[in-house]
Design a protein around this nucleic acid. Structure first.
Ligand SMILES: [Mn+2]
Ligand SMILES: [Mn+2]
Ligand SMILES: [Mn+2]
Ligand SMILES: [Mn+2]
Lengths: 150, 150
DNA sequence: TTCAAAATGTAGCATCGGCTACATTTTGCG
DNA sequence: CGCAAAATGTAGCCGATGCTACATTTTGAA
């Protein structure tokens, strides 16, 4: 419009290498693909540890989805060897599922702690962490731990 | 198994209020729903600013998806009023799309800067940021900015 | 100018994770 | 015990986002 070729309305944009950029997006997509599974195993593990039972209806209510949706995702957990269940009984985690839950919970806490440490209000930290946690790599996680220990 | 009622193998788990927890998960899901759109407008804006054209094939290659997938997503951008395009021509952003791109880019940079500030290696920061950025709330973003200015 | 390669469009398929609607089973209360 | 309510299972729909395969258009080089 009013902008001419020689104006410097914006710094010249330097794009990353194509392959590098593609790899970053692919990583983000793959992290997202496991996000639902991670939330389920973490929640199931919490329910089992706190009360004793992890029933589809409870899981659904806490996740804010319909029980049909929860049941379908639990089916995926079972297909992937993370959970077990029998009709009309609660859901349980396999050793693999339990191990995943432990990692996911530790990561969740570390993310919350880091957010709070840099000045994010606690409830906001908890809320944001629920989405952020699935995209924090082990390397970044280690950096967070170092930072918090400083 | 070997665990008795009175043992303290693990700290008693205190679960958040159901409604609060559901709301957190819902927020994370809604953030995820806009993630793809955000990545596309940011990338299109970068391509337009750097070279001049944003063609479906370039977009696809940089995102690491097939051109058919990119075309489908560009269709969604158009449906949502963020982009325009005519057959066999490049893709352009609407004012709304451009405004979104600006916000997304600013947020992306802030996230990268914060990660680096707390000790995450730069390339790792860039990689993780691609997924993280979509889940950082405005409140957290403001906290990041404050922290970096300290 | 011609024509093959590249880019683009389009159709069709799959998976995932939402939903509603309805069928079945279990539970608990009178 | 019996029966209604709650929980659970299941079917079928949808949109988003991947893919491959193939049709069409554009482009550029001989
Ligand atoms: Mn989460
Ligand atoms: Mn979590
Ligand atoms: Mn991104
Ligand atoms: Mn980005």
């Amino acid at each position: 419009m009013t902008e001419r070729k020689a104006s410097f309305a914006r710094a010249p944009v330097e794009l990353p290498d194509e392959a590098v950029q593609a790899e970053r997006f692919e990583k983000a997509r793959s992290a997202q693909a496991s996000a639902v599974l991670e939330d389920y195993v973490e929640l199931i593990d919490d329910l089992l540890a706190s009360g004793g039972e992890a029933r589809p209806t409870d899981i659904a209510r806490r996740l804010g989805v319909s029980h049909a949706t929860a049941t379908k995702s639990i089916g995926r957990l079972k297909r992937e060897g993370l959970a077990t269940s029998k009709a009309y009984r609660g859901v349980f985690l396999t050793p693999d599922g339990h191990a995943l839950a432990a990692r996911v919970r530790a990561r969740h806490r570390l993310v919350v702690d880091l957010l709070i440490a840099v000045g994010v209000p606690p409830e906001c930290a908890e809320r944001d962490a629920e989405g952020l946690e699935h995209h924090v790599s082990d390397v970044a996680l280690a950096a967070f731990a170092r930072y918090l220990k400083r």
